[in-house]
Amino acid sequence: MSSTEQGTSSAAPAEPTTAPESAAAPEVPESFYYVHGKDKVVHKVSAGALQHSALIHGMISNLGYTEEQAKANPFPFENIDGDILQMVVDWCNQHKGKPTPPEDTNLPKQKEKLFDLVLAVNYLEIKELLTYCCKQVAMMVKGKSPEEIREIWMIPTDAEDEAAEKEAKKRAGKEAAGETAAAAGDAK
């Protein structure tokens, strides 16, 4: 991953570029942290980019890790798929230190990906990105009939839901009866 604001990321991060010489403020070296998802691929992300995530920002704010310590202790997000975490890291890099625009058109159009992204972003508490994702889902619901929404988002009808519930209860009842019978057999 390049730690510049270009937003491309990879598992083998490059060193950060230095600030332009014209910058008047004294240069403070940027600190970096490491995160990985379900696929264990480690992403190097600057503290500035991670500020977007209230969860990670809260975790790192009192750590005071050295570069070595940070490298040795990547934050594991086992509940997030690798490609989704990559998207999140890219977004945080692209929007590091910048005001977020009113819309983001680069979100995944596939509903499965968008859903996983929503869950990840909600978990990582990235407020602005969650807003974009929710707007995108709202757009995808707009103009659809109840039947279309059920089909697209795999939602059972009330009747199907009730039938499934009944079936599950029946199965649970049978299993419980089986266990009781087995227990009774053991006791004998």
Binding site: K111, E112, F115, D116, V118, L119, N122, L130, T131, C134, K135, V137, A138, V141, K142, G143, K144, I149, W153, M154, I155
Partner: peptide, 24 residues
């Protein structure tokens, strides 16, 4: 894949907040 109704409540609230009233 998660079903829309399985989204966390706060997320669903926000999706509804961004929707047109007819969609809700």
């Amino acid at each position: 894949m998660s079903s829309l109704i399985e989204m966390p409540e706060l997320v669903l609230e926000r999706i509804i907040g961004f929707s047109h009233f007819t969609a809700v």
